[in-house]
């Protein structure tokens, strides 16, 4: 295991101890089977306890885990014949977002998602999954095409947020995000959005207006990063942990706030522990969602989409 998160350390320590005892047993006359069994039982309990009681800040760490599967990892497991297409036709190709078509169980679909890099080099190319306006415009171009050819749209959300850069502002970052929100509202094909890692602010929302919104158990969705919130609210980015709790950004929080439809469970210890298993969990939810949504007429779809967003928010 390359990356160990702070809260996982007791688990790792215990695992090492068990390995040590096993090694000792195999190399000496002493039979420690009983002790090993006890420790393994404790490990089981400890894992259940730690992973079953993750605090918001722990989940932020999970969502940001360097080995956390990306959009492309899930595309490979869930879809077949994925063909990626590039460019927004106005300015360029933003590799922070990928888009293309594929089969989902024999049904052609359009797949769009933020794409982080696996290493520094790829991250630079993909701008750490933080889009410029051309990324949103590429996404919208593919969504319109999906509508034309009657393909459901599946969006994977995984970004720290829109890129705060000069060029992004000069090319109409605000307009590009706003345009997507508005146009996604009117697409006459089913749209399923799944937050797989970090869902940060307008950059996430620009792929996030749809009929069903799901979140992986350890993903987050927020108006601003915990660090950004802490800096704004308490003038201290160091209070990110406090912000993660106060801002209510976990899948469980969003379910409670009636913003998302379903929490997709994660493999124990996080999605990165078992990509295939994780892809299966996501696959099941996509399948259910598509079945449900394909029953609606275009008019019903749009009316329900409005009803869905209409009720979000609390006031007196």
């Amino acid at each position: 295991m390359k990356h160990v998160l702070e809260f996982e350390k007791p688990i790792i320590n215990l695992k090492e101890k068990i390995a040590e005892l096993k090694k000792f047993t195999s190399e000496s006359e002493l039979d420690l089977t009983e002790e090993i069994t006890t420790l393994e039982k404790r490990l089981e309990e400890l894992e259940a306890d730690v992973y079953g009681n993750l605090k918001p800040w722990d989940r932020v760490q999970m969502a940001r885990h360097p080995e956390r599967p990306t959009t492309m990892d899930y595309v490979e497991h869930i879809f077949t014949s994925f063909i990626e297409f590039h460019g927004d036709r106005y300015f360029g190709d933003d590799e922070a977002i990928i888009a293309g078509i594929a089969y989902y169980r024999d049904q052609p679909v359009t797949v769009i998602g933020h794409q982080r890099g696996k290493d520094t080099k790829e991250n630079i190319r993909r701008n750490f999954g933080m889009p410029h306006p051309e990324g949103y415009r590429k996404a919208l171009r593919h969504m319109k095409q999906a509508e034309k050819f009657n393909r459901p749209i599946i969006c994977f959300i995984d970004t720290k947020g829109a890129y705060p850069g000069r060029a992004a502002e000069e090319r109409g970052q605000s307009e590009a995000i706003a345009r997507n929100l508005m146009e996604m509202a009117g697409l006459t094909v089913p749209i399923i959005c799944i937050v797989i890692g970090e869902g940060g602010s307008g950059g996430a929302l620009a792929l996030g207006v749809g009929d069903q919104l799901h979140m992986l158990e350890n993903s987050t969705y927020s108006v601003i990063s915990p660090e950004g919130a802490a800096a704004l609210l308490w003038k201290d980015a160091g209070q990110a942990k406090r912000a993660a709790e106060t801002m209510k950004i976990t899948a469980y929080d969003l379910k409670q706030l009636h913003v998302i439809d379903q929490i997709i469970p994660e493999a124990r210890g996080g999605a990165h522990r078992d990509v295939k298993q994780q892809a299966d969990y996501i696959d099941q939810v996509i399948n259910q969602s598509l079945k449900k949504l394909s029953a609606y007429t275009k008019e019903e779809l749009l009316e329900r989409r409005w009803e869905k967003y209409k009720v979000i928010g609390e006031f007196e």
Partner: peptide
């Protein structure tokens, strides 16, 4: 965004935009 309303504030962007689409 209104920080103190967190993701609900973010979702108002979506809500108003959906309303504008219908109006438009």
């Amino acid at each position: 965004a209104r920080m103190q309303e967190g993701v609900l504030s973010l979702m108002q962007m979506a809500k108003t935009s959906v309303a504008i689409k219908r109006f438009s």
